[in-house]
Computed example of a mutant assay.
Amino acid sequence: MTNVKIVTDSAASLSPSTIQNSHITIIDLPVFINGKFYGSVNNISSDKFLHLLANCSSQPVIGPANVNDLTKLYDKLGSDGSQIISIHLSSALSPTFKTAQSAAQASVSDVLVIDSKATSSGLAYQVTKIAEHIQSGYPVELIAQGLTNLRCKTKTYFSVANSDQLINRQLISRFRGAIERKLKTSYIYQFTNNNFNLMMRSRSCQSIENFWHNQIQKMHNENIVKLTVLHAGETQWANLIQEVLANEFPFITIESRITKPEMASYMGLESTGITYLLG
């Protein structure tokens, strides 16, 4: 049986034990401030990156993966005859998927590159499932086919109170963003079909709370098997959501983590996300 190895992004919300036990290779991306190299995402904690995002006059920028470096990585991992599954953060959020495609074409190894079409937690769900299927001896083609169903069963919602990165990422226009910033507008997005869909914008905290209340009621009619809360430093709101979810779904283990730099650079500060997987 051919050995299969996994390559993915640091954006995946994976525990160190999962990375080690499943022999997952994490791509390291450069971080620039004022056009100068500052460090790499694998060596900058999420807390540190959020501090930079909040306090630097010139916001940190995560650079793309290097095609040549990624090609060499694939060549090295496949030198023993192993196949490689390289799965990445949604192509709508990061250029790494396209870079990986170019690197795979240049590599002498057998590499299957997959667009997870998911945010951090959704990517983690897919990587975990890939690792399970590899352990069970599934062929690469069958593993890839199974991910389509997993994506359909993954639901992701974000609440965002700080619009700076939404403006930078052109999810909202600069003109509208400037006005709504003064009005202290908050936003609710759903990530689906590889895109962010605006569900609500409101100046009222009560309206945002009502949305989450209604969403949680809908979740009671779904067969949820995994639930993850990610936040960009907004611990009070994240803790409140986790507490509510724990009371509503006492038999489901709920993970709560600070978001990785790749997602923080997209959604910005004061954002909280919920991702859950249906059985």
Rank of each mutant, 00 (worst) to 15 (best):
M1N: 08
M1Q: 05
V4D: 07
D9S: 01
A11F: 00
A11S: 04
S13G: 05
L14Y: 00
I19P: 02
Q20N: 13
T25N: 11
I26D: 01
L29F: 00
K36R: 13
Y38A: 14
G39D: 01
L52P: 13
A54D: 15
N55L: 14
N55F: 15
Q59I: 10
Q59A: 12
N66F: 13
N68K: 10
D80T: 09
L89V: 02
S94W: 00
S94G: 02
P95T: 03
T96D: 01
K98I: 11
T99W: 01
A100W: 02
A106G: 06
A106Y: 10
V108C: 09
D110A: 05
D110H: 11
D115I: 03
A118R: 08
S120L: 04
S121Y: 05
G122W: 03
L123I: 00
T128F: 07
A131L: 02
A131Y: 00
A131I: 01
S136F: 12
P139Y: 02
L142Q: 15
I143N: 05
Q145H: 14
N149I: 14
L150Y: 06
R151L: 13
C152M: 10
T156M: 15
S159C: 15
S163R: 04
S163G: 12
Q165H: 13
Q165D: 14
R174K: 12
R174C: 13
R176W: 04
R176G: 15
G177Q: 02
K184V: 13
I188L: 08
Q190F: 05
F191P: 06
N194Q: 03
N194I: 01
N195M: 10
N195K: 09
N197H: 07
R203L: 10
R203G: 11
S204T: 11
S207D: 15
S207P: 10
I208M: 12
F211M: 06
N214Q: 07
Q215P: 10
K218V: 04
K218W: 03
K218A: 05
V225R: 10
K226R: 06
K226T: 07
T228C: 15
V229R: 03
L230M: 08
A238W: 07
A238I: 05
V244F: 02
A246H: 10
E248T: 08
P250E: 12
P250D: 13
T253A: 12
I254K: 00
E255R: 06
P261K: 00
M263H: 04
A264T: 05
S265E: 08
G268E: 08
L269V: 07
L277Y: 08
L277S: 08
